[in-house]
Amino acid sequence: MAQPTLYQYELDEASYRVRLLLSMLRCDYETVAVDMFPGQEHVKPAMLALNPQGTLPVLTQDGLVLHGTAAILMYLARAYDPAGRFLPEAPAVFGPVVTWLGFSETALAPALQARLAAMFAAPGDADALRARARAAFRTMDDHMTMRHFDGQDWFCGDGATLADIALFPAFALSRDYGIDHDAFPALRRWIRRVRALDGFITMPGIPDYH
């Protein structure tokens, strides 16, 4: 299998979700930088030929062209994590993991949009987007509050999964669009656990404590 190629934008949260998994999987890959802002290259003919949806990131490997962040994460887990650590086979864990992956694509979409609006003047009603992002973080904080009572550090199962990787960046970057961490004590605890994972990497906006 040839190395995968990731078409991505360094400051894009969705691209970071994939870089984070690739790093934790110790997977070597090529990158192609796509000038999302201000270039809008992701919605111009060259990238649209690859991904008509005009979204980033895009992953290619051996003739496959994949788009949609959760789909790419699942593909990489299947390809490079044969033990199924990040996407466990057991239905009792697989079910919650893909449920939270769905959440990362739907309930957290306003969080991604709020950040792009705040940082790159992308279109969107900033206040409304922030309110919806905050509601999603509440759902996550309520869940992790309950998990903590059971002595669990992660969203699903006994260890970090794709759910944690897909959900981490939106909350870790939330100050970029004006949502403080004050009101989410269970998520503050959780992001410290994520940061301590082997292979963890940062992106601009997520400080590297030194």
């Binding site: 403080d180 961490h181 004050d182 004590p185 503050r188 605890r189 410290r192």
Partner: peptide
Amino acid sequence: VALSSSIEAGTSAGAV
């Protein structure tokens, strides 16, 4: 301003 258990040793949190 916080539950004691929410502020782990070696960590900080903002509050208003």
